[in-house]
Design a protein around this nucleic acid. Sequence first.
DNA 1: AAAGTCACG
DNA 2: ACGTACGTGACTTTA
Length: 883
Amino acid sequence: MNKIVLIDGNSIANRAFYALPPLSNSAGMQTNAVYGFTTMLLRLLEEEQPTHFLVAFDAGKATFRHQDYKEYKGHRMKTPPELSEQFPLLRELLDGLSISRFELEGYEADDIIGTISRLAESQKWQVLIVTGDKDMLQLASNQVTIALTRKGISEMERYGPAEIQEKYGLAPKQIIDLKGLMGDASDNIPGIPGVGEKTALKLLHEYGSVEEVLTHADSLKGKLKERVTEHAEDARMSKDLATIFREVPVELKLEDMSYGGYDQGAARELFRKLEFKSLLERLGDAGDDAGSPQEVESLQLVRADVEGSEQLESALERVQAVHLEVIGENPHEAEVIGIALDTGDAVYTAAFDWLKQSEQAASLRQWLADAEKPKHIYDSHKAIVALHWHGLSLEGVAVDVLLAGYLLDPTQGDDTLSGLSQRYGTGWLASDEEVFGKGAKFKVPDEAITANHLARKARAVLKLAPVLKEKLEADGMRSLLEDVEMPLTRTLSRMETTGFKVDKAGLVAYGQELTAQLDTIVKDIYAQAGEEFNLNSPKQLGEILFEKLGLPVVKKTKTGYSTDAEVLDKLAPHHEIVSQIVHYRQLAKLQSTYIEGLVKEIREKTGKIHTYYRQTIAATGRLSSQFPNLQNIPIRMEEGRKIRKVFVPSEPGWQVLAADYSQIELRVLAHISGDPRLKEAFIHDMDIHTKTAMDVFGVHADEVDANMRRQAKAVNFGIVYGISDYGLSQNLNITRKEAAQFIEQYFAVFEGVKQFMTDIVKQARKDGYVSTLLHRRRYLPEIKASNFNQRSFAERTAMNTPIQGTAADIIKLAMVQMEEKLREEGLRSRMLLQVHDELVFEVPEEELGIMKQLVPQVMEQAIELDVPLKADVSYGQNWYEAK
DNA sequence: AAAGTCACG
DNA sequence: ACGTACGTGACTTTA
């Protein structure tokens, strides 16, 4: 069957113009409307596969409508020149892509489209009209669908008669009556004053048409009756104006609109001229056509939920890759919309509802949950968590290509499936952004399009898995993936779905205390400032401090005065207000992030907070925590630390148990550097900062005062961070010279550490990367930069990453082993959190004895180093007490 | 969306 | 001479 796509050229160009940033070519000519138009064209060509295609434009200023009503479109703003000068380009583009276009003096694009759609309908063609103009809905029929752009242009909503009925309760024809009653300010169509969409719909639902409404004007009440009677003529005229004229003398024949694809060479030349880089890439510039979207391999696609559940059942044993489409960032509240399974021969797709509920999907659900059925996947973590909340489980992950990609290069920018496919050359895959849109424009497209995209994702996973696995093997990270990261995914999922019980009332009560305190402080600050201002605005605060009160400017930011804690600290002696501001900042932080923020994250049903750990974010191999971040709950200041009191066990009589590694990073450093003195210190389990002070200052233990220990501690931090005299001087508030001396003294004593630092930088320069104990890698291309800053940064990173990363490796090992132990021993205790060097559990009373012995033991024995690892354990009624 | 700030290890 | 300590996430204001 023939299918024609009709585009309302002016409408779409307008939308694109206003929706997109003002992109321009090197000649300074704005091209955003053409660009937006082009991406839409390409998408329609690909997704609709039309046999015919036409773009209609408005022509001339006056149309037949102006003869009836001079003010028609009277108030409309002039088309800005930045847009009107894009129309010639647009025409050129359409010609270049062999897409027919049409315009006719005296008629608008919608009249042309109305006429052509009528002709196409009479030939029993399928018609898709693309526009931003709701008036066009009047053309909808069984054969004619209207795609309305929403907000931008990437999002389209399709309307047939059924959708119009659903949305307005009207037949397509009645759209004209709707407009007749309510008018249209943008076209300067009056309608009946005071009648908006609500009233108009009510009237139409009752009487059906403008004429009938007018006939029954007498039975209306009050003001409405008055208005309808008075403006009857306006209504009739408005309806006329809104009626699309479907008898335009279009000399073009339907056959003239046939579309048979475009010439790639011509398109390339056009895109080059217009400087559409991303579109050129899609075409595969530089003569490389392999990855262009027009030439993707065809897939044998079976919609298991609608046509082939039996086929799938018999194919299940051969499925190699699975893709679950999870919508949303937070898997604890995410929607799963569909699944795709790839055997290598065919891809089977299904809507999630079917997977979740259909009897036909029972064997598929079993297969998903079967640890003995290996399956490749992208982001098993997200899938496992999202599925959990729907009562489904996923086991038997063979290769998680997201994890594999992360290990191969944790700092690569784009770790989406599409990005990985491109990087590893396994074929072109549309990005989710292209298919779904992003931000406010995000929308799940039609089922067919979605199924296709999901299928292609499953295929992308299938192709990537062996490639990435081989690379991992070559780089010595197969075990890191299979024995650490993938098992950890399951452990994390369990921790997250278990969640941490929170005393909501306690949180709210503390919030009220803070509100009262904040109130007082704010008033005080305003009084001292002599005016009220937005304390949360660094800009306004800066004006008060540095202009009104004349305090010295310590530091500037890109945009103005700096007012951060360090600056305020220096300003404190100058004015009383400063310490108040510091206090305000502290409490405001608690209130917004840790009271209000956390309250929002408590699940109604369970009274728990479920964080989501991200396993593929940190460049060093650490985890990160989101929604909410439970790795940065206050502890350093007592006021903040109190927050931890609301984190309680989920069962009565249970306790919170926490165990943290003592000095794990310096112990790791002792191990990998082999420095004898550092090793010695840990073998004798000495206080490392005191020991450092003794060695650096050359004094006895009893001669180390608090200040010396503090300075030594800062030096140790500096060592771990990749030391620089400048950084240390900043931290200790001393001169760079003094800092440099400290460092020199340190290196004189800890020669092994010094050696390690120089070696690791050399190695990074030679190999281009540094590694952790478990062979985790981080590439540091900037280690060769000529820019001092870039290079220095890379050098510090080279020193820090093996330390921080190895510590991350170790606690990951401990977590996996801990989970195993709990299962083996049949313990009911549950692991809840990881905070980089700390694990938190909830423990039944009767397991307290075993757990306070077992947890540190597992942590300490997770791996054997040249120095002992040490973990301290504590427990209490809540997280605060476990200190 | 970026910048500034601050919470944690 | 150069001028930053390493790694994260959340909130608020502002452009």
